[in-house]
Each structure stands twice: as structure tokens, then as C-alpha cells.
Nucleic acid binder design. Sequence first.
DNA 1: CGAAATACCGAAAACGTTTTCGATTTGATA
DNA 2: TATCAAATCGAAAACGTTTTCGGTATTTCG
Lengths: 342, 342
Amino acid sequence: MKEATLKEIAEKLGISITTVSKALKGYPDVSLKTKDAVISLAKKLNYSPNSFAVNLRTKESKTIGLIIPEIVHHFFSNVINGIIAEAEKNGYLVIILQSNESLELEKKQVALLINKRVDGIIISLSNESNDDSHLKEIIARKIPFVQFDKIAKLIHSSKVVINDQIAARNAVQHLIDNGYRKIAHIRGPLNPQNAIDRFIGYKKALEINNIPFDASLVYTCEKVTFQEGIDFAKQIMTDHPDVEGIFAITDLVAVGVLSYFNDIGIKIPEQVAVIGFSNWFMSQVLTPKLSTVDQPSHEMGVASFKLLLEEMNCHKKEIPFTPRTIELETKVIARESTFKKK
Amino acid sequence: MKEATLKEIAEKLGISITTVSKALKGYPDVSLKTKDAVISLAKKLNYSPNSFAVNLRTKESKTIGLIIPEIVHHFFSNVINGIIAEAEKNGYLVIILQSNESLELEKKQVALLINKRVDGIIISLSNESNDDSHLKEIIARKIPFVQFDKIAKLIHSSKVVINDQIAARNAVQHLIDNGYRKIAHIRGPLNPQNAIDRFIGYKKALEINNIPFDASLVYTCEKVTFQEGIDFAKQIMTDHPDVEGIFAITDLVAVGVLSYFNDIGIKIPEQVAVIGFSNWFMSQVLTPKLSTVDQPSHEMGVASFKLLLEEMNCHKKEIPFTPRTIELETKVIARESTFKKK
DNA sequence: CGAAATACCGAAAACGTTTTCGATTTGATA
DNA sequence: TATCAAATCGAAAACGTTTTCGGTATTTCG
């Protein structure tokens, strides 16, 4: 009761391994008679090609690697969803690794994937990542490679992103349009490009509306957690009791803010309006319902894999591929936490 | 600029492939001098063994497959987290597939993983799964195999579960202890073992407290969604305006209930108390904060991989392995949505 | 010094597939 | 009938590694 091989089938049928292989793969130079015999015996023996041998021979494994900072995250789990769905549709499997926002781990994992000889790599960088060497290694090895969301701008690879500057600007503009002018920003860490861009978007919105920028209204998350939302909300109310609105780098932090305000009885949005980012599922069931910026996470996953697939196909046929960047649309979702000021 | 191989190193050093291989793998029968030469050249050439060839030769890929019904799910993404963390720690990578609660997909994916010759498989069944043939196939092929959470009781494999009956009984007992006696249950679909067990637990709790069971108080989800929570909440209030408590199969559904009650102004828990299941992150930030049953999701992942690893090690050494079942502890998390009745 | 033990090395098979290229057979055509 | 094309098949190399087994060369010891 062991695995059937081409050799076994060949011997039982008294023909060569070559012919069996060709019959199963639909080569034209095998007679209908032997072809039928091979196919039926293969089915009977429950034959399936040994993928280890196929990998070795064809030098591809139909497997890609995916590195993300954090799986338990509404945004990322949605992206994963999009990637593995699209991958499976195209006959690829996905190995998932989690960097836990650690650059060191991220580097190890890139090395791991290179060693495993995956056909391609998709990555969203950790917050710590301010070093490109591991990404350059991927490029140097000519491994098809796509970055999404948290990217290294200077690495010449395909990318799938949103326009964080404009998205953030729109979020802040929404607050301003609804009558809130003294707006604090709880920003992300200093490294990630998207935290930087959202911060720039925040400043631009102020500028456009002739609101002077006040650096003391900007608070910087280290870990981007729920707890930081709570802590900064408290801090903000101490530093700026007259604050009118808060724009948080992501919904998780905004929820922390909401949670704190609810607990101590600060009315949202009457006293302070709050807007988040990413449109986590949770945001629509809170009290008050949280305004946010919708980020097409599933589509980002799908687009990322499609780009990677293009590059993998070129790579296989040895035709050159020029990396592309896809920018997906976002939109402000207005809910209760930013209702128009009376 | 292609990949270095043993052959290349051997030729450059004027020795045999065998010796190079042995030097790199620390065999005792190679002199220190040649060993050093090999190792330093290997490092210089950035050599790493071709895993395709290693897989073929050793018949293992250090890769396992994981099939779950739904990634975008607080419980499952936490389990994934536990599994890939533990796997990586032990030198294994994880291919993740999502069955989307479809039996058909689940079967295809099992076949896929078998074909890929993964070293082991971990699975949580889809709600549709009432057919065992694909699982029997795994067993028949002697592939190390662990089921968790949503399991097929009759399949003889290792399992990681909670005691759903007792956990559900405790949840309902908590409601009763706090003064709620007319309790509705929004249960899961008919197939999954854990939905069945939680329903049994619900009935047992009533029985213990001499509360007659009323089948009209039981509502059955098809898809176990937020929307179903909303719909059933509405239905329950129509059918049983005097209901005092609701026990929902999972937090997502409970949140739907909460959301509906909040919207139409039904006070929780004053008019109706609500308890969920699984302790999603979201449940602690709602208004009111949702009582629930904590399920150690991360630990389930870790335990699942550990069991699988044990079996994989036995499998490799061809020593027999007896499947085990690990039952993890749960506990009721009392929050605002079930405060003691006055 | 001779024999036995030890240290070091390499040939070769094996894993199972894919694919090239040539060989043989068959049938058709002139 | 001789020739040529088409149809059908198989030998063999190749992918890169691991491991067994035997062969030298060197050392050790009586």
C-alpha cells in the first residue's frame, strides 16, 4: 500500500516510463490504445505525480510565500483571504508567515522563503523595517516580488497600495467639514511609509483650511494598540481639554479612544469627534458607530496576487517584466462619531 | 549568477560531491581541513541546499497544511497565529487554505494537500461537513492528522477541543445565577459537533435548574453571521416579548443581537441579558460590554501543532502513534450585558 | 616490522519526474 | 517495390541531494 509511481505503471503495462508520462500529460505521440490503458491503470492505482520530483524537475513548486506583520487584524486577515482565494484559483498555494512587527523575524522569514524556493513572495513590512537588505536580496535573486500596504518606496518591485496622503486628508477634511477644527492626530510609528503619509495628509488638510499646524496635537504610537488609544485619549484631554476632533491612524486605536471616552463620560461627537482608518468590522457596531476610511483589503490581496502571477509567468518564460504599482480607491465612511456639529 | 550546488563546490575544491555534502552536514568522516575549506567556500558562494532535491530525497518537506472555514474570524485567526508560531519554532512552514464553510471546497483542498505531500494536516471542519470520506483518506494514507474545534467525532485522529457542553452549560448557568430564567438560544447549524454540544449544554443547564425546555425559544443559524443576530433578535422579541436572556452560539451573533437592541432602544441587560461565546476582542469594547465564554484560541493552535509534531516524528521513525484528544479549559467572562438582575 | 585499527574519501545508487532525441514501425505514395 | 512521411515508442540525461558501502592511506600497537 505505497504510492504509485510512473515506474510501477510502466512495469505493469510492459511499456516505458517515458510513454506513461507522456500518456498522462497528453503528449501527441502516444497511441490511443496505450493512452487509455495508462490512464485507466493510473486511476485504478490512485496515481498522483510525486510533487517533490516534479518540483525538482520543473524548478517550481506552485507555492508562494506571504509575510505580514500580524494575522489577528481585520485588515490583514482580509488581505490574506483575497490572496489565498486568488492563488488557489490559479493553482497556487500560500505559505503564511507572521513577522510580529519585528524586522529581525522578517529577515529570517525572507531567508526561509528563499531557501524553500517559493515561486514568489508577497510582503507587507513590519513597523520596524528601516533596512532594505533582505528585500534587495529578493530582487537580486530575481524572485517575483510584490509589496503591499506597508512598503519600501525605494525598492523597485510591484506594489499595491492606497493613497494614504489623500485618504488621510479626506478623513481630516471630513472632520473639518462637519465643524471640528482643533484636531489631534494619533499617528503610527515613525518608520512605516503609510504612517508618514497619513501624517502628511493630516497636515495638508489643516493647511488647505488655514488651520495652523500644532505639533503638540500629534501623538505617536509605538505599537498601534487598543491600549495606546486609551492612553493617548487620556493624554489628549489633559494636554488639550478643548480638542474638538481626533484622527487616529487605525480603527483599533480609535476604538481605544472611544472606549476611554465612553468610560469617563465624554460625549462623542458632541464634545470630541473621532475618526479611524481601515473600516474594521467592529467599527460599525460600536456605540457610537465609528466613522472611518474604507480600505479595500480583500481587493488589495487579489491585486497583489495578480501582479505576482504576472511576474511569475514572465519569469518562467524568461521574458522581462516591469514592476507596476496599483493604487486602490478609499472612501470616507461617515458614521455617528463625526456627526455634524450644531 | 545562478544557485550554487554541491557539485560546483566539489569541482572548485577538487573533491567529491559526497565529501562536500558530508562536510556541510557534519559527518564525522571528513578531515578538519577539507571541512573548513568546504564550509568557507559554501558561505562565499552563498550556498543553500536545494530544498526540492532535499524533499525528494528525504521524502519530507517540513511543511504542513491547515484548512479552516474562515480566516477573517477572531477565533480562527488566533488559532492560525498559534499554529504558525509553534510550527516555525520547530522548523515547519504552514500552507493555509480556507474552505469557506463549503464541504466541496474542503474535500478539494484535502486532495490538494495530499498531492502536495505535506508532512501533516490540521483541520477545522466546515459547517457543511457531514461526510467523512476525505478525512478517512488522510488516515488511510497514514498522513499525520489533527482536528480542532469543529471535529468529526468518529474519525480516529488526534483532536484539540474545548468541552462545549460544559462551557455552554456554564454560560447559561451564569444567566440563571444572575436572575434570568426565560432564556432563548440562538444556536449554530445542525451539522457541526460544537453547535450540537452547545445546544445540549443549554438544555442541561435548564434541566438542572428545573426550567422547562421550550423548543420555540431555540433559533438556528444557517451561516452564523452578524445579520442573523439582528434578524433573530427581532424575531425573538416578536415571538417572546417576555424573554429575559439570550445565549448566542458565538460573539458575532451576539453582537448582532446587541446592535439591534441598541438601535431600537431595548435596554441590556435590564430588559434582556445577552451572553455570547468565544471572547472576541470586539466584545469588550461594545456598549454594553458583552459577557461571553473565553476560548483559548491561541493555545488551541499551539496544542494542535504540538500533537501533529508528535505524530510526524513517530511517522518518520516508523514507530506507532496513538491519537490523543486534548481538552482545553474555558471560562465565563462576566461583563455588563449580564449584570445581576435587581 | 607486520597487522590491525582508524581516518578519510569517493563511486554509485536512489528519490520520481520531464523532455530531448533518436529508433523503430506502420502506412502511404510514387 | 522502393521511398518517404507519419506515428509510436524508449533510452538516457538531467534536476541536486543523501547515504551506503567499500577502498585507500595513515596511524597505532604488540
